[in-house]
Computed example of a mutant assay.
Amino acid sequence: MDETALGLEARPASASAATGRRDGRVHGTPAPEYGEYAPEGWVNPVLVEQERQAAEDRRRDEAQRQDAVTRRAPDPTRPGPDERAGRRTHGPGSPRGSSAAPTSASTSPYGASRLDFVLTVGLLFVGLWSVFGALSTGTVASVTREYVAGQFGEMSSPAALSSAAVVRVVILAVVFALVAWWSVRRLRARRWTFWVPLVGGVVASALGAVPMLVVVFQDPAVQETIRRVSGG
């Protein structure tokens, strides 16, 4: 029976089958023709190439990351910044265990030492107490008048001692303020400071006695007594 008469057309053989070439085969399985289902076991070569390229890209990225980590890792044979700083601090001839900071600075937050801090604060307290005591100008004038009376006799103008006592208070207060300011600055700098209130006390005593002495030795009665005693 003729196949054309039955309505069937003879399908021409594929070019690969006719020529016997195996260009479309992968793993021994022929590639499907146009309009056919892929046979079992056939793998698309385009997908295979894409997977291979993706695997190569992943391996290359991983190699680059490993190289970056290796570059950032510190070299154990090279000294670090801390070690280099330690070498600069200690120097080639100094021991590593030595400390450049003075030991006295660590014993007290202020002053050269705790003893210096205590002495300075104590002397400043004594100076402040002296200033408060000098505020009683009437008592200071009375005590001075009694002393002068015992040495030179009664003064002609004892009331002038009260004014001199006021001037003395001002001098003592100004000197104490300067001494306290200077002492605080030296204590913060951790320098020896106890001698500052001592020197300030001597200066304050000398300056505070000036107005009292001026009033006493300018008094006419006192001057007359001094001339009489000296034989003049």
Rank of each mutant, 00 (worst) to 15 (best):
T4D: 13
T4K: 09
G7A: 06
G7I: 04
E9S: 08
A10I: 09
P12S: 13
A13P: 08
A15N: 13
A15Q: 13
A15S: 13
S16M: 10
A17R: 12
A18K: 13
A18L: 15
G20T: 10
R21L: 12
R21N: 12
R21M: 08
R22Y: 03
R22S: 11
V26Y: 08
H27Q: 11
H27A: 15
G28K: 04
G28C: 11
T29M: 14
P30K: 05
P30S: 03
E33P: 02
Y34C: 07
Y34W: 07
Y34N: 09
G35T: 03
G35P: 02
E36I: 04
P39T: 02
P39G: 01
W42T: 00
V43Q: 14
V43G: 07
V46K: 09
L47V: 11
L47P: 01
V48L: 14
V48D: 09
Q50I: 15
A54I: 10
A54L: 14
E56W: 02
D57Q: 15
D57N: 05
D57I: 05
R60I: 00
R60K: 03
R60F: 01
A63P: 00
A63F: 00
R65M: 00
R65C: 01
Q66G: 02
A68P: 00
A68M: 05
A68W: 00
A68L: 01
T70V: 05
T70Q: 11
R72T: 01
T77G: 10
T77S: 14
P79Y: 02
P81G: 12
D82V: 13
E83S: 08
G86D: 11
R87I: 07
R87K: 09
H90N: 09
G97T: 08
G97W: 06
G97L: 10
S98W: 02
S104K: 05
S104N: 13
A105R: 13
S108E: 03
P109W: 07
Y110F: 12
Y110M: 15
A112S: 13
S113D: 14
R114N: 12
R114G: 14
R114Q: 14
L115A: 14
L115E: 14
D116S: 03
D116V: 04
F117S: 14
V118P: 08
L119N: 05
